[in-house]
Nucleic acid binder design. Structure first.
Lengths: 196, 196
DNA sequence: TCCATTTGTTAACTAAGCATAACATCTGTT
DNA sequence: AACAGATGTTATGCTTAGTTAACAAATGGA
């Protein structure tokens, strides 16, 4: 499998994302608490995320320094404009992913929710935009959608052992085969090494 | 936005994933190096991932303890059966996600690669299976696919300000609006607090 | 065989993110 | 006004995952 992008050193882009998974949830917690309760305090955020007040206090201080969170005159927590923008964008991505997994892929609701929760903060604006347009196009064509999803959930495997289908061919191997197929005996270059 | 699942404490499932992002790449590095070079050593993995030999050495020791990596009689690195299974599954997910983003959503290749790289290890088996079937069904219907993707890339916005489309209605708000819409004035409960 | 280089390991440090627990400071009731 | 309880902060420690730098050991050429 050569197409897979292991060969770069860009894999660490994962870490220098604009917001980490936990930051995403701090922001959404404030948004959610203010919507449901009208206000958000450190304790509320901690309770909402099921973490200690100490952890919440420290994290929220950093978010204030980063300019994503501030306090109102009564010292309740608020999102800044930037924080608000981020929170909304992540919530937006969550909805898109969740609906894609559940409604289109037919994944069980709880699993769809978990997957969406894990990926919501990682989706690029381009993919988010694409997914929105895709879902709109797909869901606006009722018959077409149903035909497609029915076919998908049918029993016929489109790609047989022959490995000839539009999905597999560009990859060079059949993606329908379970990921654990042949162990591929590699050539071992001889090199002297004592056993420890 | 009430449907968003902030209200649980399950959000930390992100951390106790079977494999972390970095573990995923250690496994794939070994797989990739053995395929291209025939062998993999600590130094090779470090070079491949662009990290220090020290970091690679420590991480690989832990992976040996976890039973995902072992050594051959000449002390070259190998994946165990379990490590192989995980690596293949992650590579599999990468291909599916990458093709979905690039070919279906029309996201630029490099962005599609980055997004797939960030999410490959987070996709549940259910979503992975669903995505496979979906791509197969979609790509097996050429005309249908083209119509759909053309529509998606067209200029018409399906959901107007009225907020009536099959995508937005169950959510209760229009997903086409930019995530930064109205700041939604929350009611602030009065509570005495001195200003510091 | 000797020795320089490469390779692998280990120690000490950083940073993010959590936990506990002690302490400080509000809040509101009596 | 005083005190109990709720709330916020700070100190210490853990884990993961990286860094440098020092050291140990294996490799292979002269």
């Amino acid at each position: 499998m050569v197409l897979v992008a292991n060969d770069s050193s860009h894999w660490r882009a994962f870490d220098d994302n604009e917001v980490s998974h936990s930051v995403a949830h701090y922001l959404m917690a404030i948004d959610s608490l203010r919507t449901s309760n009208g206000y958000a305090r450190v304790t509320d955020v901690a309770g909402h995320l099921n973490i200690s007040r100490g952890a919440a206090s420290l994290a929220l201080s950093q978010l204030k320094e980063r300019g994503l969170v501030k306090e109102d005159p009564n010292r309740f927590l608020l999102l800044t404009e930037e924080g608000e923008r981020l929170a909304r964008s992540i919530e937006h991505n969550f909805v898109l992913l969740h609906r894609f997994f559940e409604d289109v892929l037919g994944v069980p609701a709880e699993t769809a929710r978990e997957d969406a929760c894990k990926m919501e903060h990682l989706l690029s604006p381009e993919s988010s935009e694409g997914l929105l347009r895709f879902l709109q196009a797909l869901l606006s064509k009722d018959k077409l959608t149903k035909a497609l999803i029915a076919e998908m959930n049918g029993d016929e495997t489109i790609c047989t052992q022959s490995g000839r289908c539009p999905l597999c061919e560009p990859v060079g191997e059949c993606l329908s085969l379970t990921p654990i197929d042949a162990p591929a005996p590699h050539e071992t270059r001889k090199r002297k090494r004592s056993a420890v």
